[in-house]
Nucleic acid binder design. Structure first.
Length: 562
RNA sequence: UGGGGCGUCGUCAAGCGGUAAGACACAAGACUUUGACUCUUGCAUUCGUAGGUUCGAAUCCUGCCGCCCCAGCCA
């Protein structure tokens, strides 16, 4: 939590501070402008934290949420709703400032006519293919369109008829008249309006022409009084057009566009197109599959919003192309959950233990702390009985050096209970698998320490056979086996790098009784194992489903792997 | 061969002419009724590279090298 208070300075905030200091602006206005054609992902979170974050750092500032809905053929109301939910969940609030680029369609249209009247835009009849030819290449200048010199009167007439639906889709466009020989292809008479007969989710069938992003965005920003228009690096080439547009229109103000590097994460893909493929091809269960880097997936996985904010703060804002290590994201998640998640015991792969010197019908109530570092979070009762379950991996018949857990003849501590000694190992006769341990407990060690001062190196978790409930636990691992799955190396498709072990479902788990009534979405630390949350969609009392959010750090596993 | 952007530790990232912050990762150790947490320590004589300017350069200048983006009537 204190990590969120440490605000990292970056080049954008420096510019903003200077603009405030010089008096260029006395109030900062930013905006987050998603296109409602997909779900938000961790990359968007970076932009959200930047834009909304800046607005929170200045008393008078605000940040608008604006849907960039200029292409009705790709956009849907479903996404509009999901995006709002995600931004809110991340902890941000746009107040009254919810806008749609489509709110400005009338104004944008007027501005287009203004450009035509100034002789700075023309209607072009070239087909898409012809226009591509005329555009030239990266190294060769383009050629002027044969329609470039139409009179303002003719252009105005044609443009109005475009609006009125007289022409077929794609038959004509409105173009800015800038410079076909520019080294910047965006300045080679870019298209401003296209004819597109598609129903818009907001404006319905009012329009059959729609403005392009490059024309819409600067106008929308200016309309809202945005001071700093922050976007990703690939839009740097569009800045001259952004500026040209506002310079040639009677716009109320001229926001400054500043570009920063988008977020890349190793072992994951962060591209709407690729995420959509994973969903459509059934590699995941949906946009909110807990393995997805979408905000909704992450939320369902159990990542706290505060951890995402902390992560965005830690990665910083710069112009370097960068790929952040997912380990940093996981660190932020553990850091947050360590503070907030109550501790509980759950056995993922149960091995039966019978305490031979403990009476059959006896139940001993013990007390366990909900958070060892936070006594104020209280305690909960635990029941010790003759039959218990421990983790299969906490027993080894032939323990290697430094293995602190249970083995034949060994004594360990059962957390919050007693010292237990393993006396007998029972195996399945046909498979040889260990199926039960016969142990004794030392009643003198109640609470976990021995009056005679003897020490025990290992402490393991356990659950009472008749004070636990069965649960399904979904173990998640990284979705890709390759560090950079999107790299297309040797022509391999990124989908061929999907980790076949990214999901392991365990159906035979036993968790403390108290979890039966836990709220969907609530988060716990299963001691010694990791952080888990109650699945929002699939979990029901007596049919519990937990998602493993992230494991605990495991130095023992590291030692073993050496 | 056009235009734009970028090169500081394994990964992010400060630094803005005065002698390389911090975080993650990694390593070693302490503590521990979670092999968790926490704590301590270590981890760039060097900033893509070659020159130049300067008492002094990651910071200024020049050349070179490398990487990313742009030829949608997508955003």
């Amino acid at each position: 939590m204190s990590s969120e208070e440490i605000l990292h300075q970056d080049f954008i905030r420096t510019i903003i501070d200077e603009d405030l200091k010089s008096g260029k602006h006395d109030k900062i206005v930013t905006r987050f402008p998603p296109e409602p054609n997909g779900y938000l992902h961790i990359g968007h979170a970076k932009s959200i934290c930047l834009n909304f974050g800046i607005s929170k750092e200045h008393a008078d500032a605000r940040c608008h949420l604006r849907f960039d809905d200029t292409n009705p053929s790709k956009e849907e109301q479903e996404y509009v709703n999901a995006i709002q939910e995600d931004v809110r969940w991340l902890g941000f609030d746009w107040g009254e400032h919810l806008y749609y680029a489509s709110d400005y369609f009338d104004r944008i249209y007027e501005y287009a006519e203004h450009l035509i009247q100034q002789g700075k835009a023309f209607v072009c009849d070239l087909s898409a293919a012809e226009m591509r030819e005329y555009r030239g290449t990266l190294t060769e200048a383009g050629k002027n369109s044969p329609f470039r010199e139409r009179s303002p009167e003719e252009n105005l007439d044609l443009f109005r008829r475009m609006r009125d639906g007289e022409f077929a889709d794609g038959s004509r466009v409105l173009r800015a008249k800038i410079d076909m020989s520019s080294g910047n292809i965006n300045m080679r008479d870019p298209v401003l309006y296209r004819i597109l007969r598609a129903s818009h989710h907001r404006t319905g069938d009012k329009w059959c022409i729609y403005p392009m992003y490059d024309f819409t965005h600067p106008i929308s920003d200016a309309q809202e009084g945005i001071t700093h228009s922050l976007c990703t690096l690939e839009f740097a080439d569009h800045r001259p057009l952004y500026d040209w547009t506002l310079d040639n229109l009677p716009a109320p103000c001229h926001p400054r566009q500043i570009e920063f590097a988008r977020l890349n994460l190793n072992y994951t893909v962060v591209s709407k197109r690729k995420l959509l493929q994973l969903v459509n091809d059934g590699f995941v269960s949906g946009w909110n599959d807990p393995r997805m880097p979408t905000i909704s997936g992450i939320r369902r996985r159990g990542y706290p919003a505060a951890a995402i904010r902390s992560f965005c703060d830690k990665i910083g804002i710069a112009k370097n192309e960068s790929t952040v290590d997912v380990a940093l994201l996981e660190h932020c998640v553990r850091e947050e959950l360590n503070e907030t998640a109550p501790r509980v015991m759950g056995v993922l792969e149960p091995l039966k233990v019978v305490i031979t010197n403990f009476p059959e019908n006896k139940e001993l109530e013990l007390s366990a702390q909900n958070h060892p570092q936070k006594p104020e979070l209280g305690t909960r009762p635990l029941h010790f009985t003759r039959e218990l379950y421990i983790e299969k991996s906490d027993f080894m018949e032939e323990p290697p050096n430094k293995f602190f857990r249970l083995g034949p003849g060994r004594e360990v501590r059962f957390r919050y209970a007693f010292f237990i000694t393993c006396n007998e190992v029972i195996k399945d006769e046909s498979t040889g698998e260990v199926i039960e341990l016969r142990c004794t407990y030392d009643p003198e060690t109640l609470g976990g320490s021995a009056p005679d001062g003897r020490k025990v190196k290992g402490t393991i978790h356990w659950v009472s056979a008749n004070h636990s409930v069965k649960a399904e636990v979904r173990l998640y691992d990284r979705l890709f086996t390759e560090e950079n799955p999107g790299a297309d190396k040797e022509g391999a498709d990124f989908k061929s790098f999907v980790n076949p072990e990214s999901l392991t479902i365990l159906t035979d788990c036993c968790v403390e009784n108290s979890l039966n009534t836990a709220d969907p979405g609530s988060q716990f630390q299963f001691e010694r194992q990791g952080y888990f949350c109650v699945d929002q969609l699939d979990s029901k009392p007596n049919a519990l489903v937990f998602n493993r959010t992230v494991t605990l750090r495991d130095t023992w596993a590291k030692v073993q792997n050496r």
